[in-house]
Nucleic acid binder design. Structure first.
Ligand SMILES: [Zn+2]
Ligand SMILES: [Zn+2]
Ligand SMILES: [Zn+2]
Ligand SMILES: [Zn+2]
Lengths: 159, 159
DNA sequence: TCTGTAGTTGAGACTGAGTCTCAATTGGCT
DNA sequence: AGCCAATTGAGACTCAGTCTCAACTACAGA
């Protein structure tokens, strides 16, 4: 089942009005792996030119509130968003040359951080672990340009 | 030896002009543990009201370039800076209620991340690990306000 | 100590990214 | 179909930071 159907289902069962705009924003958001708010505004406007920037931001905030979207501050440029609904927790490794983002899991970390939190008597709520480096192919090509957050895995919307 | 002396020494030996403004910015910056650029602008202006915003930002950028200052994106508000010159690497744990920031070291993490980088053939350059939670005293008081990045350990400048 | 000059500064215009306001519109219930 | 609170579009506004450029100054060399 396409992920946006589940997201729309979730909204419905939580008494949140399903407008055309929200449907569109959700459908386009799930087409990306990581995206910036402005990228999404631009993308969504190709389907409905009159959609307001505020609507996109408001919808993202709502989804974030609901725990279906996460906001990541990568080191360069504006924050990236990611639809994490029905997706396992993972952390990120970013190439500073080409901007590639790799998602990975490392359960031993997750355990270590509980230990650290306990050490300082903190109740742990969230965390961000980001690694920055140079990917294999950029090491080879020896390029020097800095990362511009790229689009990865964007699908066209098929009605 | 006061840390700013070492910083000024470093600048001198690297052929960077020592202006009054830079001296002031450096001296005030080392008085903080973590600070935002705007906090530093405000602070520095108490000593020299005519100092320009741009000068503070430029100086911070220069020190960052030189590896003496690090910029951290905590999750709320603008980035925090930290003078890391002659300071061991550490990561951060932040209380989302009162904004307290704890610095800690966890060598096992540092090792794990090398492993992860190797797994994806990345040449690792930097990383950020941030834990967010509720500190012991906020857990007790059950307060609900969200973090505003606080000043910690600010010294007055003594001539 | 006096200069020359490249590096630095202050002031303010400018930008990007996001927020806010409010009248007009609309989803979803009856 | 009608109602009305929720949502939207449009644009003003904010905040944090960048840029530009004429005036100023640190400091190497005379
Ligand atoms: Zn993790
Ligand atoms: Zn991800
Ligand atoms: Zn670390
Ligand atoms: Zn620190």
């Amino acid at each position: 089942m396409k992920r946006f159907v589940e997201v729309e289902q979730w909204l419905k069962t939580h008494g949140i009005r399903l407008t055309d705009q929200r449907r569109l924003v959700v459908r386009r958001a799930v087409a990306y792996l990581h995206f910036t708010a402005e990228e999404l505004v631009k993308d969504v406007r190709e389907y409905d030119a009159s959609i307001a920037r505020g609507t996109v931001y408001r919808t993202l905030a709502m989804l974030q509130q609901a725990g279906m979207v996460e906001k990541h501050d990568f080191r360069y440029g504006p924050p990236n968003y990611e639809v994490t609904f029905a997706k396992a927790h993972h952390d990120h490794l970013m190439c500073l040359h080409c901007g590639e983002i790799i998602e990975f899991q490392e359960p031993r970390w997750e355990r270590l951080q509980d230990e650290v939190a306990k050490r300082y008597k903190y109740q742990l709520l969230t965390h961000t672990h980001k690694l920055y480096g140079v990917c294999a192919s950029c090491q080879r090509s020896g390029e020097k340009r800095l990362a511009e957050p790229p689009h990865l895995h964007v699908e066209e919307m098929v009605a």
